[in-house]
Design a protein around this nucleic acid. Sequence first.
DNA 1: CCAGAAACCAAACAAGTGCTTGGTAGGGTA
DNA 2: TACCCTACCAAGCACTTGTTTGGTTTCTGG
Lengths: 189, 189
Amino acid sequence: MPRRDELLAIAARLFAERGFKNTTVRDIAEEAGILSGSLYHHFASKEAMVDELLDTFQTELWEQYDAIDASDRTPREKLEAVVRASFDAIDQHHSEVAIFQTDAAYLSGFERFAYLEERNKRFRELWTRLLSQGVESGELRADLDIELVYRFLRDTVWVAVRWYRPSGELSPVQVADQYLSILLEGITT
Amino acid sequence: MPRRDELLAIAARLFAERGFKNTTVRDIAEEAGILSGSLYHHFASKEAMVDELLDTFQTELWEQYDAIDASDRTPREKLEAVVRASFDAIDQHHSEVAIFQTDAAYLSGFERFAYLEERNKRFRELWTRLLSQGVESGELRADLDIELVYRFLRDTVWVAVRWYRPSGELSPVQVADQYLSILLEGITT
DNA sequence: CCAGAAACCAAACAAGTGCTTGGTAGGGTA
DNA sequence: TACCCTACCAAGCACTTGTTTGGTTTCTGG
């Protein structure tokens, strides 16, 4: 792995653990065994590091979402697939998801990260549309507030990054199975 | 309202909006129309402010939890009541819940905030016990992983603080109704 | 009106922050 | 050998951070 990628991986881990603002360039450098100033040979700024992390991750995730949305499935099946893809992202891009969850609100205040808001908007449009289509097709309950179900769904999925550990005993498939089971059928008998 | 309480309310709002570490004492002072040093006439430190906020809130919340747990209800009814009490807390102590959600992980690293971990532990014990009792009584599904359902339940409830607005059009009762309906019965027809 | 308390100011300090600058070590290439 | 390029160091700069100190204003009860 090129040195630059090593440094970016260290930064990703620290940003995820402590938050962006709460991680100093000296922290990153120390973990890499160099001095803080040397980081600037590889990256233009601390912001540029997190930018690169979030941007590449989001691009990759949306390729999957778009493929699912364009596929030949019922709304409910698409919802399931999107949820599974999201848990996959939590598994394979754990740090990036954690950073997004923790620092997106703060970062989106800067012009540089305006694309975060844009992605959030697209995300909301996709999920609420799938929910509406699910209600129309009769697969989903019609008595629920779509907007509220959307927030419920979105939060339950992404907040899992806080406790999920990629190398743990639960696979993303197992977690997705149980989450979807609860979500679709409820926890009562 | 005494001056001290005013300042604490301002600090609570800013901590909730921007996060603890990301809010400076100068920010708080400016909103109050004073200089940052003057805050130290009322509070010993910035940490003391957030400590007071979190401590009083947690104490109040647990009075309700304990009352519910000691009441004469079935496990499922207790779960419902605890969820409703939690949404009430989001409504009435919005800033404190937001701070707890955002900064508890960071703060609990300090000795001063060791009680946060302790509360989390008690919280987990209460909820998992109610879930287990619900399964035993036949009210809840037996095929689900209790630990995972607990995390699901906990996160879905508390993460709502990110979008819920106390003065908005949705009351905590309405939100709790829908959340419980999804959780208990699922979103499918 | 006046003493004392409560609230605040003005100025600074030490530590920590992101980042810059000019230089150096070392390996690969012609 | 001479050259270059990647990776890094050493030192520091300008700024922000939480906090302290000694003094001043404002309010209130007797």
